[in-house]
Structure formats: structure tokens, C-alpha cells
Design a protein around this nucleic acid. Structure first.
Lengths: 92, 92
DNA sequence: TTATGACTTGTCAAATTTTGGCTAATTTAC
DNA sequence: GTAAATTAGCCAAAATTTGACAAGTCATAA
């Protein structure tokens, strides 16, 4: 599950429109649409705000938001998995 | 082991000077110095060139080079580990 | 001590990437 | 059909990255 998908899911379950959330984030609707479709990346601060607005778990959203970015970085690399393993041990 | 450290190690074992490798990479010595110290990031292409010049395994270097970048991205996040797990399953 | 070579530090401008918003197009709901 | 919602494409402003230069430190040798 990617960040945008999850946001969309939460938004629809609360029956909110893109333009409503967009307004709360102080961005325009097209931009919000792009975030939902993963064409643009939300800022960290926006993730936190969305968690509040959608009454969702901030850590859950941060996790998938961060995962998207990591994925973006490694996806074309053959050595992706090995690199992840290294990082995993480095952060512990 | 970080990328720069490893490069330095390899460079010294071959008794090469920073300026020699810098010249091969077509960058100046200060830039090379920064790459070795992790202050600047090498380009992918430079990693491959370094592997050749240092007769090292390109995948090994790419792996730690990539790991540095991932680390940089996640290091300040509490949810780093969880995000890595997600990416790990996503790339498989 | 002075000189030299290797490396590092700091700063700057050029280049690239990211960001945000506008307009217009398309899709969806009625 | 039309009106609202969403998406697509484009452009300029802002931010980040890149590379180079000048000047600095540090060690060693003359």
C-alpha cells in the first residue's frame, strides 16, 4: 500500500473531497490530486497534518510515506536488497 | 563501512593519491576529498569508474553507496525500520 | 625555518531538481 | 446535459546539488 492510495482510502471513508483536504493543507486541488496518485510527494509536515485531519495514525502514515521515498531511491538497483540490509543494521 | 571510507581504504591499498583518482573522475581534488569523507555524494557513474580504477567489485561499491543514501533518508525517522521492511517486501 | 606535497575547509555561482499554482481537459454523479 | 470533482500539462519561483576556486591545515624534508 502506497501513501497516496492510503490517503485516498481514508479520505473517501470520511467522505471528504480533495479540495477540502487541499484547503486544509493550503495547497491547490491539482496538487493534492498528484499527491494521492503518487506523482508528487507530500512534505513531512503535511503527512502529520493529514494524520490529524483523517484521524489516522501518524506513524502508520509516516511509515508508508517514508517507504515510498526509499523505494523510489532503490527500485532500479540490483543491489537494493543488500543495501537495505546494511541500512537496517546501521540504524540499530 | 561507508562508501567514502571504503574508497579511501582501496585507494591507499593501491597507493594512489586523491589527485590521481580525482583526475580520472574529472573532478578536482577537494571534491574527491569530500566524497571520501562523505561530505559529498559520488554519482552512480563515478562509483562504476572507481570500481574499475580500484579494481574493486562494482556491486559491492554500489551497495554501500546506495546504503549511504538510504541511511541519509531514514536516519532521523522513528519509523525507519518499519519503512525498510515495507520496501524490502515491495521489491521482491 | 622554510618549502613542498597531500589533503581539507569555506565560499560562490551555475546547473539541476523540486515545488506550487494556473489553465484546461477529462471523468463522474446527478 | 451540466455541474462538480478530479486529472493533465505547463511554467516560473524556490530550493537543492554540483563543481570549481582560493585559502587553509598538517606532515615531512631540506
Amino acid at each position: 500500500m502506497q501513501f497516496g492510495e492510503r490517503i485516498k482510502e481514508l479520505r473517501e471513508s470520511k467522505e471528504l473531497l480533495q479540495r477540502q483536504l487541499a484547503a486544509s493543507l493550503e495547497i491547490d486541488t491539482p496538487m493534492f490530486s498528484k499527491i494521492e496518485r503518487g506523482e508528487r510527494r507530500a512534505k513531512r509536515e503535511q503527512v502529520l497534518l493529514l494524520a490529524e485531519l483523517l484521524e489516522a495514525d501518524a506513524n502508520e502514515l509516516l511509515t508508508i510515506w517514508l517507504a515510498d521515498q526509499v523505494y523510489e531511491l532503490v527500485m532500479d538497483e540490483e543491489v537494493a536488497e543488500a543495501a537495505l540490509e546494511i541500512v537496517k543494521s546501521r540504524i540499530k
